[in-house]
């Protein structure tokens, strides 16, 4: 039996692209989140909350609005998709002291969110021990059926890995213009998620770091725009 791959709601379908990982049908949302309809599970990677204040502490006064911007987008997604489970795929905070620097309002907003569904904090390299006072459950990895969720992708693992960490972005050139976007990267066996955080930068999927994960350019970059555009690896440009 197959569930519908489209997000369930009354209005016209929201922009997304369909893909399968280890034959599991998934919807890649234009917001940069993953929706597994069968499991009613929403997945977001690399929120990097409090990145702005982490820089400010070192003398670079980035706007203090990144946490609120990221949480707003996340809250809107949760309200729309009504997930039963939310997986934050690691690096949810930019550093270990991030949750301590959060404003009371943002802290409250996040705590409300984590109560809205079964909330799972996967450990990341920036936040090996996810916060204790915000609700949710901390895990190193999570396996559901044929899918394993972890922060850092591991080269050579069996099909079914969904990971974050690398902040994939992709670039195409057309009509004398260059367009760079965050993207999902997948070859059908594994999926690397884009960073969801407002101030989280991107790394070109043609970078060395992705090389052990995919066989040559036999993968697709699902580039984020108003919709999600699956672009074949051979069409991508480095840099």
């Amino acid at each position: 039996m197959h569930g519908t791959i489209a997000p369930s709601h009354e209005r016209a379908p929201d922009p997304f692209a369909a893909c399968t990982v280890a034959s599991v049908p998934l919807a890649l949302l234009a917001e940069g989140a993953l929706w597994w309809a069968e499991e009613r599970t929403l997945v977001v990677a690399d929120l990097h909350l409090e990145k702005g204040s982490a820089f400010a502490a070192r003398g670079q006064m980035l706007p203090p609005y990144d946490t609120i911007a990221t949480l707003k987008r996340l809250a809107a997604l949760v309200a729309r998709m009504k997930p039963e489970r939310v997986i934050a795929l690691g690096d949810s905070f930019h550093d270990m002291r991030g949750s301590g620097r959060m404003s009371a309002t943002d802290h409250g907003a996040l705590a409300t969110l984590t109560r809205a569904a079964e909330w799972i904090w996967i450990a990341g390299n920036h936040d090996p021990e996810p916060p204790k006072d915000l609700g949710g459950r901390a895990m190193q990895e999570l396996t559901i059926g044929p899918i394993i969720f972890r922060h850092e992708p591991r080269p050579g693992t069996a099909p079914g890995e969904i990971a974050g960490h690398l902040h994939p972005s992709a670039r195409i050139v057309g009509r004398g213009r260059s367009i760079r976007r965050r993207c999902f990267a997948s070859d059908g066996r594994r999926l690397v998620m884009p960073a969801f955080g407002a101030l989280a930068g991107g790394l070109n999927v043609l970078d060395e770091a992705f090389r052990p994960l995919f066989s040559g350019r036999a993968f697709h970059a699902f580039m984020l725009g108003e919709s999600v555009h699956p672009v074949a690896g051979r069409r991508l440009v480095g840099g």
Binding site: T20, G174, R177, I179, V231
Partner: peptide, 27 residues
């Protein structure tokens, strides 16, 4: 000369594969 006024979405769409249909067909 580079042509202005064309939306990035169009360029993205041009480069994208019709994977939705492929995926649906496969399913």
């Amino acid at each position: 000369e580079p042509v202005g006024g064309e939306a990035s979405e169009d360029i993205l769409r041009e480069n994208a594969d019709d994977l939705v249909r492929e995926a649906m067909g496969e399913l």
